[in-house]
């Protein structure tokens, strides 16, 4: 039972990270119908930039801020140079373009930062806090709180700001949005920037716990994709829920079965979900129109 509590604590932590990545997935998917396979690379770039800014002597908050800005810039560039030029691409083409982008970004990271594994210091002290017989690190709390704050900020952005609403309008109907005077291209750009910034935030939060290297983004990205599907593709709050659920299932499963199969458990779960309810937990079924 105590073990279970411990698993749930770590599950919530990883789950929060998945939630942020999945949220990034769903923002881009909503805005442009593209599943961005380079989402995991945003996480990596955010973390790596922060690590090197810190090394270069910047203060922690400033390093974090610059890292998020750099990653957002990468997101904008991705839209501008890879997605926008391929306007009429099919689903398969966009999947391959973003896979190409992820390989490209990984290659760039390899050149800039090498193959070494890096870490970030925790945000605050690292004294474990005891809850019954389970322990929780302050950084785990930081991850959960940071995720919660970010998710609510994103929700506020989409529900209450003019730009957020304009992006939502684009996701419902691009033509109509264009006709009422929304700059659709710019809204897509903002979505990519925002989504990249979310990825960077996830990277900053998780690196003090798990370390980072040039290719560590791949699995995080794929898990985020899993989480987004689990929650219902395109449903932002579903993505968050899916992320947290996936984190808990995976950690508890790994704890009781075998940690080597941790990733396999996550993908096994997602396949079962797809077989039973392809539209995800909060997704709606779609009927084909003829």
């Amino acid at each position: 039972m105590d073990q279970l509590l411990q698993f749930i604590i770590s599950g919530l932590t990883v789950g929060s990270i998945y939630a942020l990545v999945a949220l990034g997935f769903s923002i881009i998917y909503n805005a442009s119908d593209v599943v961005n396979f380079a989402q995991g690379e945003f996480v990596m770039i955010g973390a790596m930039s922060a690590i090197f800014m810190l090394k270069a002597g910047f203060s922690y908050p400033l390093a974090a801020f610059i890292a998020i800005a750099i990653t957002a810039g990468v997101g904008l560039a991705l839209d501008k140079f890879a997605i926008e030029p391929a306007k009429n691409a099919t689903v398969v083409s966009t999947i391959i373009i973003t896979i190409g982008a992820s390989i490209f970004l990984r290659g760039a990271a390899l050149l800039i930062w090498g193959k070494e594994i890096y870490g970030l210091p925790p945000f605050t002290t690292n004294e474990p806090i005891r809850i019954g017989s389970a322990t929780i690190l302050p950084q785990n709390l930081w991850v959960m709180v940071g995720t919660a704050v970010t998710v609510f900020a994103v929700k506020y952005f989409f529900d209450h700001t003019k730009m957020g609403k304009a992006i939502l309008a684009c996701s419902f109907n691009k033509k109509a949005a264009y006709l009422v005077g929304i700059n659709v291209k710019r809204m897509l750009l903002v979505s990519y920037g925002l989504s990249a910034a979310l990825g960077a935030a996830a990277g900053l939060l998780v690196t003090p716990i798990t370390f980072m290297s040039y290719n560590a983004g791949v699995m995080l990205g794929l898990k985020g994709f899993c989480a987004a599907i689990l929650g219902g593709m395109g449903n932002s709050m579903g993505a968050v829920l899916g992320g947290i659920l996936l984190g808990i299932v995976e950690t508890v499963g790994a704890g009781f079965i075998s940690s080597g199969y941790k990733d396999a458990i996550a993908f096994f779960v997602i396949m079962l979900v797809l077989f039973v309810k392809p539209s995800g937990i909060l997704g709606k079924g779609e009927a084909e129109r003829v």
């Binding site: 890879a82 391929a86 691409a89 373009i97 190409g100 390989i103 970004l105 390899l110």
Partner: peptide, 20 residues
């Protein structure tokens, strides 16, 4: 050498964007 990954990714993107 180390540019291999980068170039591989770039080729993939360029082909897909311009010669789908």
């Amino acid at each position: 050498e180390d540019f291999e990954v980068l170039i591989f990714g770039a080729i993939l993107m360029v082909i897909m964007i311009f010669l789908p």
